[in-house]
């Protein structure tokens, strides 16, 4: 359960700490006093029904939507309280994969991946080209995709290209909004594997909104479930499977889940 989240853990072991977060649009409150901790170096899968505010929480953490109450800390720092320069420093450590990819439509994939490099780093064009092509190869895109425009790519390729851009600066924390939706099962498995490898080798923290039970079972260290604007359950796959909460039960013991075997 959410209140069993280890609040006692040292603060530098926590990548994201959210306390009492409230976000609403008009009179409708989406998040009602949400508490969440994401440990450093873990892959947290975030589940919840459609429209429960999973994406809203991601956007709130990134400071894209205003919260009406509560506090969110990234690496122990409250983004709202930071001066712009330091805020940018923290934001630079975040890589974000938006649900629709959000690639810049006027730039090629290669240029898209180079945007954060160009903004923040002082690298030669040659090295940037090669590093961007490396990222593009790592996410499993064919080399000729680099010079294509987003409108020429398929949905799955857009996801991969957007991941390459999210990884451009080797971020400390990666936000993934439904990363495997729109990918074929083979592609989704490769995607999961890449995330797992990066997490193991780079100590990447991953915050992943997903409905893909395959991803949840195979790479998530912990899973948090969102309902009624709060985290109703959080824990390992085994703990989630044992949860008594009716929504969590129907999620992990439903027909779809029954066809999958947890590890």
């Amino acid at each position: 359960m959410s209140d069993t989240a280890p609040i006692t853990a040292p603060s530098d072991a926590i990548a994201i700490r959210a306390r009492g977060v409230e976000v609403g649009f008009g009179s409708r409150l989406i998040l009602r006093g949400l508490d969440l901790d994401v440990m450093r170096g873990e892959v947290l899968g975030f589940v919840g029904g459609s429209g429960t505010g999973k994406s809203v929480l991601t956007r709130a953490i990134l400071g894209l939507v205003k919260k009406s109450a509560g506090q969110i800390q990234l690496f122990g720092q409250d983004l709202d309280a930071l001066p712009p320069r330091e805020r940018q420093e923290v934001e630079r450590r975040c890589g974000v994969l938006f649900q629709q990819g959000a690639l810049f439509s006027g730039l090629t994939v290669l240029q898209n991946v180079q945007v954060p490099m160009r903004e923040y780093l002082n690298l030669s064009q040659g090295l940037m080209d090669e590093l961007a092509r490396l990222k593009i190869a790592m996410v499993g895109l064919r080399p000729d995709a680099a010079d294509k425009f987003p409108s020429e790519l398929s949905g799955g390729m857009i996801k991969r290209a957007a991941l390459a851009r999210a990884l451009a600066l080797d971020p400390d924390i990666l936000f993934l909004d439904e990363p495997t939706s729109g990918l074929d099962p083979i592609g989704a498995a490769e995607f999961d594997e890449l995330i797992a490898t990066l997490q193991k080798t780079l100590g990447l923290t991953v915050f992943m909104v997903t409905h893909d039970l395959g991803s949840l079972y195979s790479i998530c260290d912990r899973i948090a479930a969102l309902a009624d604007g709060k985290v109703i359950a959080a824990g390992t796959v085994a703990e989630m499977l044992a949860s008594e909460h009716p929504w969590v039960r129907s999620y992990f013991h439903g027909k779809r889940a029954a066809q999958m075997t947890p590890p």
Binding site: D129, E130, R133, L134, A137, M138, P143, T197, L198, K200, T201, L202
Partner: peptide, 15 residues
């Protein structure tokens, strides 16, 4: 971990 990373991000030449 570094070995895995060296393999994952191995050098490849890009035409």
């Amino acid at each position: 971990a570094q070995e895995i990373l060296l393999q994952e991000a191995r050098y490849r030449s890009f035409e």
